[in-house]
């Protein structure tokens, strides 16, 4: 195994770059007077969530690593370390990321972990750092097992995943409008990811990609940003607090409250944990599908457009 794959995680090594780019974005917004917004408490919460995520996931990552190493022993063939396997592994990790990400938006248990990343009403580089503290229990690591069983070493997978996350940092910005067409066609960009973070009905559950937007185009979840429907960021029901602890665990608290209500059947309790976010046994809340349907009912002229 090459030496550079061992030691400090690449995302931690990139932290100084993240901070420099955040400072540059703040100054650029100030100078241009447009291209994004910052608020000190929101930004501080986001960066604090990022620090907490590094520390907690650094510790719990030992368990994830042990799981993947165990699976690696079962792999019938072990891939060598070279450029070709490295690039192949990077692409496979990006496909896995797409499905992890889609799972985290479509299943409430995953959403409880991932919702943290969407909990800011802002979209700037600090939002990229607003990451989960509960990655281990989300179950996302299971999506990497097929790659391990193909013979890719878990350390290589971890390295590629780190690079994937570093790539995802830069496009959490409104400073950049559109990239060149060829780039927008293949790669995930600020425009594509703004759609992903938007809570406008047409943009819900779209653009799950990490690095290559190709997966969304292939699997039917791609929606392009529109000038006539500017993204509004945040959750369908925005948080009323900046408290990091509440931000980190609020959806789990919601799951416990919902699933422990009196008079529910076992199926309904399980559904509150694993059904899509917004599912409710009495129709008191709305899923993304229902939100889209309500929007179309109010705006029938938009029916059939992408995302509606």
């Amino acid at each position: 195994m090459p030496d550079f794959l061992q030691g400090v995680p690449v995302t931690t090594l990139a932290s100084p770059l993240f901070i420099v780019l955040i400072l540059a974005e703040i100054i650029l917004i100030r100078v241009r007077g447009k291209g994004g917004e910052y608020e000190s408490k929101d930004a501080a919460t986001s960066v604090f969530m990022g620090v907490g995520s590094s520390v907690i996931n650094g510790i719990t990552g030992i368990v994830s690593g042990a799981l993947l190493i165990s699976a690696y022993y079962l792999a019938p063939y072990k891939m060598p370390f070279n450029w070709l396997t490295g690039i192949t592994c990077f692409v496979l990790v990006d496909i896995a990321y797409y499905w992890i990400h889609r799972y985290m938006h479509r299943c409430r248990w995953g959403w409880a972990s991932h919702v943290i990343h969407h909990s800011s009403q802002h979209y700037n580089l600090t939002t990229a750092l607003r990451q989960t503290w509960t990655g281990l229990i989300s179950g996302g690591v299971l999506f990497f097992i097929p790659i391990v069983l193909l013979g890719f070493h878990p350390v290589l997978i971890g390295f590629c995943y780190g690079l994937n996350l570093i790539y995802q940092f830069w496009f959490h910005t409104e400073v950049i409008d559109k990239c060149p067409k060829w780039f927008e066609a293949i790669m995930n960009t600020p425009s594509h990811h703004r759609v992903h973070h938007a809570n406008n009905p047409r943009y819900l559950d779209a653009n799950y990609a990490g690095v290559f937007i190709t997966w969304d185009r292939m699997f039917g979840t791609f929606i392009a940003e529109r000038k006539d429907d500017a993204p509004r960021y945040g959750l369908v029901s925005d948080l009323g607090t900046f408290n990091p602890l509440r931000v980190a665990v609020h959806e789990y608290v919601g799951i416990i409250k919902d699933a422990s209500q009196k008079g529910l059947s076992l199926k309904e309790r399980i559904w509150y944990i694993f059904a899509e976010p917004g599912w409710c046994h009495d129709g008191g809340r709305k899923s993304s599908g229902q939100i889209k349907a309500d929007y179309v009912a109010l705006h029938p002229e938009h029916k059939g457009e992408p995302g509606l």
Partner: peptide
């Protein structure tokens, strides 16, 4: 809430 609003 900062420079935004939250609703319930």
């Amino acid at each position: 809430l900062g420079d935004r609003m939250a609703v319930r």
